[in-house]
Every structure is written in structure tokens, then in C-alpha cells.
Design a protein around this nucleic acid. Structure first.
Length: 206
DNA sequence: TAGTCGCA
DNA sequence: CGGA
């Protein structure tokens, strides 16, 4: 397995999932979105919608609305519990996280060709000792990452379908985001677009 | 402050 | 980019 250190604690695994594994994961995500439909998150206070739509699997899911960012055990629109995390996702966490407990949450972000995600930190968890593990499927995305301060200089790399990235240690709280997609760069998703999974341990281990 | 916009 |  190839790994590239982009910055201390930030590790990039190009082509972590082969085509067969990507298709298997895509089928799991179809099952998940049927049970837990994609919803449009909104900014706290202003209520401005994100361009990305999302859902979750696992015991907890990340949601955002006018009330704020939070993790909760149920879908914000259906009120039902999130679907279980696929075994394939749990195995990825076991292999890449170097953390001795399973993740609590798997956020699934769906990017239409025009969707973007501004520079932000993943900091709504309690357990920063656990890394964030990210998987990309579908169209290539221009991923931008910086430092712990929002105004720190940033670098960009292209994330392709099947790539994985791990934010751990000193990189656990770095600012990052998605500037744009390269439409038509993958034929995994028939309609185009990109799916991103982010696995997180939310609470401190019992 | 996980968005949007204006300006260099 | 930086401001709000």
C-alpha cells in the first residue's frame, strides 16, 4: 500500500480502494441513502444551505441547521436511526486509523458537479486523539488543506476515486475543504459527482 | 465562518 | 486572499 505524508499527521493513500472495492462501497451507499435520504444541511444562525448534500451511517451522524452543528443518533428529517456502518468501512478504519476503538460516525457527503466545501476544521468531536479517515468515490476533487490557523498558507492536491486520506495527530484539526470537482473524471457514478465518507470517533472511549 | 462576496 |  502506498502512503504519502502531505504534512505531519496528514497521510494520503492514493488508490486505496481498487475498482471492485469502490463498486462494493457504492452499492452499500445506495442502500444507506435509501434508508437515510440525502438532506441539505444549513448554516447555523443564517440558515444558508450547503451546496453539498449529506447523510450518515453508524451510531451517530453529523448534522447542521440553524441551531448549530452537532452529532445525533437520528436522521433530521425521517427521525429514524442512521443505518449501520458497512463492514468494509469498519475494516478501512481498522487498517488506517491506528486507533483501538471503532468509529461512532460516518458522514457521507454528496457533491454535485458544482458543489464546494469551504475551508473548515472538523472539531465537533470530543476525542481528538482519534483521527479522521476520509474516502473518495467518483469525480476527482481539488482538495485544499492548510494549518491550524485559518490564515495559514494552503496547498492543494487532487483526490481521485478510491483515494483515502487520514487526518491524525498534529493534523487532526487542520483547515481543509473542496474547491471544485473535475466533471467527467470518473465513470463510477453514472450521473457524475462525488461521494466522500468521513469516519470519526465522536466521544471519548468508555 | 462546513457560506458568500468583493477585491487584488 | 481577507473581512465580517
Amino acid at each position: 500500500m502506498t502512503s504519502i505524508t502531505l504534512a505531519p499527521g496528514l497521510t494520503y493513500y492514493p488508490d486505496y480502494l481498487d475498482r471492485q472495492a469502490q463498486e462494493e462501497l457504492l452499492q452499500s451507499l445506495r442502500d444507506i441513502t435509501r434508508e437515510a435520504p440525502l438532506f441539505t444541511p444549513r448554516m447555523p444562525r443564517t440558515g444558508k444551505p450547503f451546496s453539498v448534500r449529506m447523510t450518515n451511517c453508524g451510531p451517530l451522524g453529523w448534522v447542521s441547521d440553524v441551531e448549530g452543528y452537532r452529532y445525533q443518533p437520528t436522521h433530521p428529517e425521517t427521525g429514524r436511526p442512521w443505518p449501520a456502518m458497512p463492514d468494509q468501512v469498519l475494516r478501512t478504519w481498522e487498517e488506517l486509523s491506528e486507533y483501538p476503538h471503532p468509529p461512532d460516525a460516518c458522514l457521507v457527503n454528496f457533491y454535485e458537479p458544482s458543489a464546494r466545501m469551504g475551508l473548515h476544521q472538523d472539531k465537533d468531536e470530543e476525542e481528538f486523539a482519534a483521527p479522521v479517515v476520509s474516502l473518495s468515490l467518483g469525480d476527482t476533487a481539488l482538495f485544499r488543506y492548510g494549518g491550524l490557523d485559518r490564515k495559514d498558507p494552503t496547498k492543494s492536491i487532487r483526490l481521485r476515486s478510491g483515494d483515502a486520506i487520514v487526518f491524525g495527530g498534529p493534523a487532526r484539526l487542520i483547515y481543509h475543504g473542496i474547491d471544485r470537482l473535475m466533471t467527467g473524471s470518473s465513470d463510477l457514478l453514472p450521473q457524475g459527482g462525488r461521494l466522500n465518507l468521513t469516519l470519526r470517533k465522536v466521544g471519548k472511549p468508555l
